[in-house]
């Protein structure tokens, strides 16, 4: 298997090209960030609204580099035992029961408590060895011989304690397990942390990472994304759709439609064999891009003007 850092990317354009081949349109910012992260072996903190392709970016990078992707989903209350490792208590108990006789045999000839203890100590610490360790994502990532892409998703949802714990992992790529010792990664994983800006991350964490913020894409870029993702979509419909979505984003909504939702909508329109957007069609399919009833109602009211705006914009462009 290839090593994570075996091939170095020559330049930012190379990365952009490779991303494109993998079906992901990367802006200069995204490609540059990946380029630097890969060369300097630094983690990237990716911020941006939901659905602009933060997670997808990590997935594509993993596919591109030919290494496994290990994902750690953060949530409130996530702690070390869920993120790093856990002892297999059940197995430990089971084994002590099963091996009772064996233990008795071993300790049988010791007549004092001290002697038995001594004897026990002469054997290695079997029950707290890696056999009884349940590896969790972070542990797995450090253990991966050829490196991997580690995706720490929605790190803003985790607690302050966990964030502090991450600092050790991210700066030295090592963790200490009291019973076993320090585990150092063989090949530093390429780390992506994503955040939806639920809360501000600490300065310490930010300092250890490169920072990349992905906004909603510009119309051109979005149109390009749609072209690669939904090639069946006809050109004029695509332009109309992108225009419409961009106008919707400018409105005051609870949750503006993201790129992934635009793609979904495009797929729906292809399924319905739509030729162009009209009011009726928008009304029936609006729920693919908007996820709150209030938002849907608000946009429904405005559909007419939004579509008209489209045409005007189209005429101006034409």
């Amino acid at each position: 298997m290839k090593d994570l850092y075996a091939d170095r990317f020559g330049s930012v354009e190379d990365i952009q090209k490779e991303f494109l081949d993998a079906g992901y349109i990367a802006s200069t910012e995204i490609a540059t960030a990946v380029f630097i992260a890969h060369n300097l072996q630094k983690p990237i903190l990716v911020e941006g609204p939901a659905g602009v392709g933060k997670t997808e970016m990590a997935k594509t990078t993993a596919a591109m580099l030919g290494v496994p992707l290990i994902r750690l989903q953060c949530y409130e209350g996530l702690d070390e035992s869920k993120a790093l490792y856990e002892w297999k208590y059940g197995k430990q108990l089971l084994y002590t029961q099963l091996l009772k006789d064996k233990l008795n045999e071993l300790l049988g000839d010791a007549d004092t408590l001290g002697g038995a203890m001594e004897k026990l100590h002469s054997h290695e610490d079997l029950f707290f060895s890696e056999d009884f360790l349940e590896p969790r994502p972070l542990f797995k990532a450090l253990h991966e011989e050829h490196g991997c892409v580690l995706l720490i998703d929605e790190v803003d949802k985790s607690d302050h304690e966990f964030e502090a714990f991450l600092l050790e992992v991210l700066s030295d790529f090592q963790v200490s397990i009291p019973e076993i010792g320090t585990i150092v990664s063989k090949t530093k994983p390429l780390v992506f942390l994503t955040s939806n800006n639920n809360r501000e991350m600490s300065d310490a964490l930010k300092r250890r990472c490169l920072h990349l913020s992905i906004p909603y894409p510009e119309p051109e870029l979005e149109s390009q994304i749609l072209r690669t993702r939904v090639p069946e979509l006809e050109d004029n419909l695509r332009d109309q759709l992108v225009d419409f979505v961009h106008q919707v984003r400018a409105l005051e909504l609870k949750k503006a439609p993201s790129t992934s939702e635009t793609i979904d909508w495009a797929r729906v329109l292809v399924l319905l064999h739509a030729q162009h957007l009209d009011e009726q069609l928008v009304h029936t399919t609006l729920n693919t891009i908007l996820k709150f009833q209030e938002d849907i109602d608000a946009v429904k009211e405005l559909t007419g003007t939004l579509l008209a705006g489209d045409k005007e914009a189209g005429r101006k462009a034409g």
Binding site: T28, E29, T32, A33, F35, I36, I44, L45, E47, N197, E200, D203, K206, R207, C209, L210, H211, L212, S213
Partner: peptide
């Protein structure tokens, strides 16, 4: 973009 990712740490 490169200097931006290393120096600026929030939106």
């Amino acid at each position: 973009a490169a200097l931006g990712t290393t120096l600026a740490k929030s939106w």
